[in-house]
Amino acid sequence: MDLTPAQRIELYGFNNLTKSLSFNMYDICYTRTKEEREAYIEYIDEQYNAERLTKILKHVADIIGAHVLNVAKQDYVPQGASVTILVSEGPVVEVPTESYNESPGPLPDSVVMQLDKSHITVHTYPEYHPDEGISTFRADIDVSTCGEISPLKALNYLIHSFDTDIMTIDYRVRGFTRDINGHKLFIDHDISSIQNYIPEEVKDLFHMIDVNVYQDNIFHTKCKLREFDLNNYLFGYTKEKLNPEELEEITERVKMEMDEIFYGKNINRGWTNAIDLN
């Protein structure tokens, strides 16, 4: 059952619906030598270390009006980082009707809501392929809340917090809550697409595909940058340093990597080994 602001129903006890947002971002880079690969991984580890990731997640907590209970953070060796924040209901008592509107969330902290028994996590995965010259960085962010707020309100801020070429976004409402007559409510807000929570200027940058299972309150959106400039995928030099054969080969490899991640399947690799990757 979907509720609009005009249909607010008095609940029996706390809103026990669990709303979970999983946001995965990917950054792609072409690194043709071992030194470039190591420099890229070092750059990513510095750019997205546990300290900075903690600041990002605390901003998310501010956006959804959460009170931080505990922070666990870790930088890993040789690479990667994790942060987990446990949060509870913030001091806000009155819940704004804006929580029921399909619209992009704030940048960074102008909405407060009501929630309880919730958590926010991030894990990073820098990695590279030793033969094909491709390095990738993946960050997995999960925001899970119980109560009035949909974590989609934090999506806009999360998108702006990471440099991303590809995004996969999942949103699911689980469980149920009850009104004062015992009637079960399996969702408490209207939603037709995750895209409705992404600003138009951001959507214009990406090619997007939706896969939604409305009867199970499961929503999925995949995003890949529309514009391709090879300079954005080279580390430490520009495409002007490449000869025409290298330019074509590297462009093919980077685009194929992006397509495989976006479509979730391997593509036949027919290139030659003309470029020295040692």
Rank of each mutant, 00 (worst) to 15 (best):
I28R: 03
C29H: 03
C29F: 04
C29T: 13
T31D: 01
T31V: 15
T31S: 06
T31Y: 02
R32F: 07
R32A: 13
R32E: 15
R32W: 07
R32M: 11
T33S: 13
K34D: 11
K34A: 10
K34H: 09
K34Q: 13
K34C: 05
K34V: 10
E35N: 11
E35M: 11
E35C: 04
E35A: 14
R37E: 12
R37I: 13
R37M: 15
E38I: 11
E38Y: 07
Y40N: 03
I41D: 01
I41V: 15
E42M: 09
E42P: 00
Y43E: 11
Y43R: 05
Y43T: 07
Y43Q: 08
I44T: 05
I44W: 02
I44L: 14
D45W: 01
D45A: 06
E46Q: 06
E46R: 01
Q47F: 07
Q47H: 09
Q47L: 15
Y48Q: 02
N49R: 02
N49W: 02
N49C: 10
N49A: 09
A50Q: 06
A50W: 00
A50R: 00
E51G: 03
E51T: 10
R52G: 01
R52P: 00
L53W: 00
L53V: 04
L53T: 03
L53Y: 01
L53P: 01
T54R: 00
K55N: 12
K55M: 12
K55P: 00
K55I: 14
K55E: 13
K55L: 15
I56P: 00
I56N: 00
L57H: 05
L57G: 04
L57W: 04
K58I: 10
K58Q: 14
K58S: 07
K58C: 07
V60K: 01
V60Q: 04
V60L: 08
A61Y: 08
A61L: 08
A61S: 15
A61V: 10
I63D: 12
I63Q: 05
I64S: 04
I64D: 04
I64L: 13
I64Q: 04
I64R: 01
A66W: 06
A66Q: 07
A66H: 06
H67M: 12
H67V: 09
H67N: 15
H67F: 12
N70T: 14
N70I: 10
N70R: 15
V71F: 04
A72E: 15
A72C: 08
K73S: 12
K73R: 15
K73Y: 02
Q74D: 11
Q74R: 12
Q74L: 07
D75S: 13
D75E: 14
